[in-house]
Design a protein around this nucleic acid. Sequence first.
DNA 1: AGCACGCCGACT
DNA 2: GTCGGCGTGCTC
Length: 740
Amino acid sequence: MNISEPIGDEAAETGAVNSVSVLFPLPLPKAYDYICTGGETGGEAPLVGSFVLAPFGPREVVGVVWPSGGDPIEPEKLKPLVRVIDAPPLAGELIDFIAWASAYTMFPLGSILRMVMRVADAFEGPRMQTAFVGGGEAPARLTPQRKAVLDIACETPMTAAELSAAAGVSDGVVRGLADAGALTRVDVDPDPPFDPPDLHRSGHDLSDDQQFAADEIKTIIASGGHKAILIDGVTGSGKTEVYFEAAAEALRRDDNAQVLILLPEIALTLPFLTRVEERFGAAPAPWHSELTAAQRRRTWRRVAEGQARLVVGARSALFLPFANLKLIIVDEEHDNAYKQEDGVIYHARDLSVARGARAGFPVILASATPSLESVVNVDEGRYDAVGLPSRFAEAAMPEISLIDMREDAPEAGRWLSPRLVSAINDNISAHEQSLLFLNRRGYAPMTICRRCGHKMTAPGSDTMLVEHRFENRLVCHHTGFSMPKPPACPECNAVDALTPCGPGVERVAEEAKERWPAANIAVLSSDTVTGPRAMREVLDAMRDGAIDILIATQVAAKGHHFPNLTLVGVVDADLGLAGGDLRAGERTYQLLSQVTGRAGRAEKPGRALLQTYQPQAAVLKALATGDRDAFLAAEAEGRRSLGYPPYGRLASVTLRSRDEAALEKSARAMRAAAPLADDVEILGPARTPIYRLRGVARQRMLVKAGRNIHLQAYLSDWLERVKKTSVVRISVDINPYNFL
DNA sequence: AGCACGCCGACT
DNA sequence: GTCGGCGTGCTC
């Protein structure tokens, strides 16, 4: 694959037509060929990576000139390109990454390109926007509205919308002033450039440990080439400061270098952007799903131009069109939010490492609770490790103890054990804050008819409806379905017989309000905080001590630090262990270690109480003793003995259909068609744990293979042998994390 | 992804 | 007898 030269040269020399391949952002596995003669292209073959407009079927589609390959077709079938689009071509490195990602994830090439090109209007050329500057002649009639606008207008161009909003008048006033000559119209770029990071500015003073770690990473970066580096340090040990130094080093080394910092979710990006600004004197280019169309377009264009040098974003930022990407930092690398589950299924951490390896730049992974995958990669020498064993942070580690719920049971209909209640009493007396953690939204996870036993489920789905008492609705957390809570059982018509079973955060809040009527109690879950601003309010109230007891789901597990929080009670420590997928223990360890880590501060260690019915479980023992290494070693051994990742390869093959009979038949037929291969084992087919979802039933097979097996090749071979129908859909997930 | 082509039910 | 449902297949 030659991607540095114009293509079609050879063809031109031999007198054949000058043609190029074009890949479209459509779910197609290959590029299509076009002739360059005619049209506005002037016969010159555009460079690989250029955006072009080409006729495709009955319409015209923007695509990317792709390295040619594959079987040539008869020249008379070729259509000419319409035109080349004025946008920076995609870097060769990105083209290579797209091709690799397609092969790895087994999604069509064009689907990967689509993720890169998701900014629809980025191709309409450098459109200009009208803005207004002040300093013109005074208008003949100066109304209060006009005066308000003129007071605000200055030399910095502002759009009519900005000016009128700031002055509290309609935008007609602004236009009127411009027509009267009091404001001057100027054209501005609607996508202003990002301020460059100040690389001479020094960061926070680093501790000896941090300085040592930063120097080690800088040395690796300075040596050039690829290396994956794991920064392993507890919360509060200053991982961020360390990788900021790495980012600065990468940006200093090359005047055009770009650095990407990935974060697991948007809720974390907003405070993080401020932190970057404090360090680099300029806000980075942001990328996440809540950007407006204009913000999205600005970041995309500036990243493509190479102008935005420091980008902070969620997982999809990995598919921005970087011109010269030189470093990726994956913060909280263990976080499962990096696994994209709909559309193209990928793990942003894994793809980042692969991208760095192919392109020859370093990738930094940071976490207080690294994934077993990364830890094993370090142990086996594939990754470098940089530890941050901060004494300062260790002092802040809470004392964790288990509450055996079989011995210390709450009264019927209550969820807090006497020991936890007494701990909260102590905390309230001491005017210190408590956090009750329960990773379950709503009031009760299950609603059951006490007369006929009917369980309320979402229509067409095998999912429980969760009562949300604030809205008095039953909600499905998997499908989004919701309905008002019915007065009678839909099955047996018994009135007032629908009974909530089990606790959610709302129910624990109800109990807390009964027990501590004088305390300030707040609930923090994705239902009670609907946006970043509401989130901010709760976090600020908590920080300022306006809340005594915060009852929260995992949205409170990460991010903020509360100085006066000294007790964390985990209402149900066993929750994540049920279901038993291969990473259940690891996930529970990460989540609970993160949430218990919220308790205490440097001067005053906090404590955490975990309510459990299985105090002998290895994960909980490890949390209580703080022996992470022993836990990881045991986890690793378990995976090794079963041949699970990272000691083996795993893929899931899911079949979906509305027609259950056809589904079962296809699943059996597909299983029978599986090629025989050494070191490849197929488990199933079996119904997925949630069998029906939105009317679609699902059967799954797991493919487990040795590390030296090319799993994708095996799967392609298999898929070629089965006939695909529209009644039963087949999807493949390489290295699955979600087994529901 | 679109969009057209192609075979089976309710309308003028 | 047609209009139209969306299943299937193609796009250089």
